[in-house]
C-alpha cells in the first residue's frame, strides 16, 4: 500500500524545521529546540494513552522522572560512558515499573485511573525529594557527565537528541497506523465492543501504557543531557499537567498535534517571558481561548480552515 502525500507532509515539515535548526540556530534557539523535541516526544507518547486509547493518566511524569534520574545517576556514578547505556536502561526500567503500576491502576475506570496515576507520581516525587542521600533531594543532580562528543556546545547534543527522538516518533507513528493502534482507537470509542470482537481490553490497555511509558522515559533521559542537571520538579504533578495542556492545545486527535502544542507553548513561554513577568497569565488566557473556542486544538482549527478551502472529501485516513 503506497503512502499518501498527506501522510508524508507532516514528516517533511518536521524534518525541514528541526534539521534547519542545526544550521540556522543560535545557542539559545538550539536550547529551545532541544526542549521542544524532547517534550514533544513526551507529549506524543502521552497521547498514545490520552488521544488514542482514551486513558487520561495524570502521572506520566513518573516515567519522565524515572528516565531522567536513571540517566543522571548512572552517568554521575559510573562516568560519562554510561550516559548512553542509561538511555537504553531507562525505557526498560519504565517498562517494568509501568507493568506493575498498569496492573494496579488500569482495572479502574476513568477518573479513578486518573487519580491513581496522580497518586503514584506524587509518591515518587515525595520519595525523590525526601531521600536526598540517594536522589539529591530538592537540589536534584547537577553536572551530569556525558560523552565528549556530545559536549561541544548545545548543537551536538541537539543532533544526537533529534536522531533519537525522530526514531522514537517514527516508531510511535507506525504504531498509530498499525492494527494495534486501531484496536486502541476502538477501545477509546467502545471498549465493550472490543471485547465482543474477541479482544482483551485490559491487555491492550496495559501494552499501550507500557509502550507510552517507556518512550516517556527515553524523553526524560534525553532531558538529563540538555542542561546536565535534573531536579524533582520533573516528577511533580504540574509536569504531567503541562503535558496534558500542551497535548490539548496542539490537538489530541492528531498524531503530530501534541508536538505542535509543545512547540507553541514553549515558544510562547520564550517570547512572552522575555517581555513580561506575567507570562504565565498570558499563556493561561491563550489556553482558555483555545480550549473554549477550538476544542480540537491547533490542528483541529487548521484542518477546519483547510476543509473550507479544499473540496469536500476526507483528506485524512481514507481506506
Amino acid at each position: 500500500m503506497k503512502t499518501k502525500l498527506t501522510e508524508m507532509a507532516p514528516w517533511l515539515a518536521y524534518f525541514v524545521i528541526f534539521v534547519s535548526m542545526i544550521f540556522a540556530g543560535s545557542d539559545h534557539s538550539i536550547h529551545v529546540a532541544s526542549q521542544i523535541i524532547i517534550l514533544g516526544l513526551f507529549a506524543i507518547a502521552f497521547n498514545v494513552l490520552f488521544g488514542t486509547t482514551g486513558l487520561l493518566s495524570f502521572g506520566q511524569a513518573i516515567f519522565y522522572g524515572l528516565g531522567a534520574y536513571i540517566t543522571g545517576m548512572m552517568a554521575k556514578s559510573f562516568g560519562a560512558d554510561f550516559f548512553l547505556w542509561a538511555l537504553l536502561i531507562a525505557p526498560v526500567a519504565a517498562l517494568a515499573l509501568s507493568a506493575v503500576l498498569g496492573v494496579l491502576s488500569l482495572r479502574l475506570s476513568e477518573v479513578y485511573f486518573t487519580m491513581l496515576t496522580l497518586a503514584f507520581a506524587q509518591l515518587a516525587w515525595g520519595i525523590c525529594v525526601k531521600w536526598s542521600s540517594f536522589t539529591g533531594g530538592d537540589d536534584g543532580i547537577q553536572a551530569i557527565p556525558k560523552p565528549d562528543i556530545l559536549n561541544m556546545g548545545g548543537r551536538n547534543y541537539y543532533i544526537f537528541a533529534l536522531v533519537i527522538v525522530s526514531i522514537c516518533i517514527y516508531l510511535l507513528w507506525r504504531l498509530d497506523r498499525s492494527p494495534f493502534g486501531s484496536v486502541l482507537k476502538g477501545i477509546r470509542q467502545n471498549p465493550i465492543r472490543i471485547s465482543f470482537i474477541g479482544l482483551n481490553v485490559f491487555r491492550h490497555k496495559l501494552f499501550a501504557y507500557m509502550i507510552s511509558s517507556s518512550f516517556t522515559a527515553i524523553a526524560g533521559g534525553l532531558y538529563a543531557g540538555i542542561d546536565k542537571s535534573i531536579h524533582p520538579d520533573m516528577l511533580v504533578w504540574t509536569m504531567s499537567g503541562s503535558i496534558i495542556l500542551m497535548t490539548i492545545l496542539g490537538g489530541m486527535r492528531s498524531f503530530f498535534g501534541p508536538l505542535i502544542g509543545v512547540a507553541v507553548f514553549i515558544l510562547l513561554e520564550d517570547v512572552i517571558g522575555r517581555s513580561t513577568e506575567y507570562w504565565s497569565f498570558v499563556i493561561g488566557i491563550i489556553m482558555i481561548t483555545v480550549v473554549l473556542l477550538f476544542p480540537k486544538g491547533i490542528v483541529g482549527v487548521s484542518r477546519h480552515f483547510a476543509g473550507l478551502f479544499a473540496k469536500k472529501g476526507g483528506q485524512f485516513d481514507n481506506p
Binding site: 500500500m1 504504531l175 492494527p179 493502534g181 486501531s182 509502550i211 481506506p319
Partner: peptide, 25 residues
Amino acid sequence: YDNLYLAALAYHGKNGNFFTNRRVY
C-alpha cells in the same frame, strides 16, 4: 469500512501487530 476492518483484524489475529501499516492485509 473501518468498523468492519477492525473486527476483521481481530478475527485474523492481527491485533497485536504494532509496526505494520494496518492497510496491507
